[in-house]
C-alpha cells in the first residue's frame, strides 16, 4: 500500500524522499514550475510551484511529500500570484518573443500562456545585457535569463565543468561563464554538454539553426505546457 497525499482533492501516491512536485508530475498532475527539473537537485528559486500544504504556502519542489498532506495548487489565488511572478520575470529581462528562436518551445512563454498572462503588467526594466556570440557553435542571449540555474546545475552536476554560475546580488544577479574574459568561447563548453540543451528559455542557443520548426508545429503550439507534465523534455528531444 503506497503512501498518498491529496492534490486538489485527488490522491497522489509518493515514495519516501520525493518532493510534492516530483510525485505530482510523476502521477501526471501539472504544477507550474520553471527552475524545477526532474533530473536535477531542487533549487527552489522561481517560486512558481508554490502550493498550499495544509493551508500553508510553500514551494512544492523543496517540500517533501508526506502521508495525508492536503495540497492545493489549481486555485485562482495561487494562479494569480504565479501570474504575477511570471510577469515579474518578463519585465526583469528583455523578452521579445517574436524575435526569439525559442518562441514556441520556451517554458517561460508556455507557462505564461497557461497562466493566461495577457500583459507583463509592471513597468519594464529594459536592462542592458549584451549578447555573447564568441563561441563558434553557441550564442548566449542574457536578455532572456530567468536565473533558474538549470545550466549551472547541469554543467556542474552532469558535465562536471562549472561553465556557468550566478553572480551579483539582488536585481543585479546575472549569469556568468567560467572564463577570465567572461566569454563562452574561452570556456570548455561544448555542444554535447547537458548544459547546452537544458535552458528553459532562449539564453543558450545553437548557432546556424534559425526558426527551424514552423509555427504551429513547435512544442507548445501542439499542446499546452500542462499536457506535457514532466515528460515534456524527453518528448521534445524525440
Amino acid at each position: 500500500m503506497s503512501k498518498t497525499f491529496t492534490l486538489d482533492g485527488k490522491d497522489v501516491p509518493f515514495r519516501d524522499g520525493q518532493t510534492i512536485i516530483e510525485a505530482a508530475l510523476e502521477a501526471g498532475h501539472y504544477i507550474p514550475h520553471l527552475c524545477h527539473h526532474p533530473d536535477f537537485k531542487a533549487h527552489g528559486s522561481c517560486k512558481l510551484c508554490t502550493v498550499k500544504v495544509n493551508g500553508r504556502q510553500t514551494a512544492s519542489c523543496t517540500m517533501q511529500a508526506a502521508e495525508g498532506q492536503v495540497v492545493e495548487s489549481e486555485t485562482e489565488e495561487l494562479n494569480s500570484e504565479r501570474r504575477a511572478l511570471t510577469q515579474m520575470l518578463f519585465v526583469e529581462g528583455n523578452h521579445f518573443c517574436p524575435s526569439c528562436e525559442k518562441s514556441g518551445d520556451c517554458q517561460l512563454q508556455a507557462t505564461a500562456y497557461h497562466l493566461n498572462m495577457m500583459t507583463a503588467h509592471y513597468d519594464h526594466f529594459f536592462p542592458n545585457r549584451p549578447l555573447d556570440a564568441s563561441h563558434p557553435d553557441f550564442l548566449l542571449d542574457f536578455n532572456r535569463c530567468i536565473l533558474c540555474s538549470l545550466c549551472v546545475r547541469a554543467s556542474r552536476d552532469v558535465d562536471g565543468k562549472n561553465v556557468f554560475a550566478l553572480a551579483g546580488r539582488g536585481i543585479k544577479s546575472h549569469l556568468i561563464v567560467n572564463a577570465r574574459s567572461g566569454k563562452l568561447a574561452d570556456t570548455d563548453f561544448s555542444a554535447a554538454d547537458k548544459a547546452a540543451s537544458v535552458c528553459p528559455v532562449g539564453v543558450i542557443l545553437p548557432k546556424r539553426r534559425g526558426f527551424a520548426v514552423p509555427i504551429g508545429e513547435r512544442t507548445f503550439d501542439k499542446q499546452p505546457i500542462d499536457a506535457y507534465v514532466d515528460t515534456r523534455i524527453a518528448r521534445k528531444e524525440e
Partner: peptide, 19 residues
C-alpha cells in the same frame, strides 16, 4: 485595448532601449 506585442511590451522598436 493594447493590441499586439509592441503596444504590450514595446516590441521590436523597444529593442533600442538599452542603447
Amino acid at each position: 485595448v493594447a493590441v499586439g506585442a509592441c503596444a504590450i511590451n514595446g516590441g521590436l522598436p523597444a529593442q533600442r532601449n538599452p542603447i
